[in-house]
Amino acid sequence: MADISIAKPAAETARGPNLLSMLWRDKLAFVSAVVLLLIVLFAIFGPTFLGDLATKQNLRGRNFPPFSFERGWEFFLGGDSLGRPMLARMIVAAHSTILIAAGTVLSAMIVGAGLGLVAGYMGKTTSQVIMRLADVIMSFPSLLIAVVVLYVLGPSIPNMILVLAITRIPIYLRTTRAEVLEVRERMFVQAATVMGASHARIILRHILPVVAPTLVTIATLDFAFVMLAESSLSFLGIGVQPPDITWGLMVAQGRPYLSTAWWLAFWPGLMIVITALSLNLLSNWMRVALDPAQRWRLEARKTKNV
């Protein structure tokens, strides 16, 4: 077990180029990385370059079918119910989608993991208080939070992040605490305690690195979950609202057209699937690649492949 903390610094020195070539070798992970990079670029530059194009309406030219260059590249994926180009809208929507999903996952993870570390590491009373708090949040329906926040604070992207993040905190909290409870008892942590390391040091240097992989797995899975939860809220009429656009909202708005204009809901749905898939494939790969105890799997394949 102790090998984890010892092996780490050694691995770090050789990580840079080695990691990239390892990534290149795993084609699936490589493609995922490229896709994610593209999506991030869309999210950053989309609204600036395509914002006007994406909002240009044409009622009489609505639901333009996809796969035709007749009306220019932006209509290659079809037009939506107000005659706006789907492709441009999807690229622009990446901005709010990624902002909400990343904002939610990050803030829920930071708060949840932080509380979980404290709950797992500190005494029983603190732990009890935090865990019961988590119980309260867990049984507080996100729909009510959404309605309260929307009614009191109004619909906006930061408020959406708030709504979604609150509901996602317990999962990080409970996972972290469960793992900490286990890690805390391990030999190297006990040893560090005996040697007089400070609480902060033990938590950050010894416990967090062990807990992190699980958190990352959950966070990557959660990314898709959050995009879909946001879509569900839009479906119920209490989520992101136009003129803001997200993929989730586009899917929800395309729902009535499933039988007449499938592309309205299909493309943004596909984007959610692709993002989720890439993120998870990459994170699965990273889990192995960054874990010295497991890296042999990739190394082994390398020798086999060459």
Binding site: A265, V273, A276, L277, L281
Partner: peptide, 20 residues
């Protein structure tokens, strides 16, 4: 790979879409 991809695609497809 198969299990990963199938389960991920399923898990990240919007449920009202699947339902309809």
């Amino acid at each position: 790979r198969l299990v990963s991809i199938v389960s991920l695609v399923g898990a990240s497809a919007p449920d009202f879409w699947i339902a309809i």
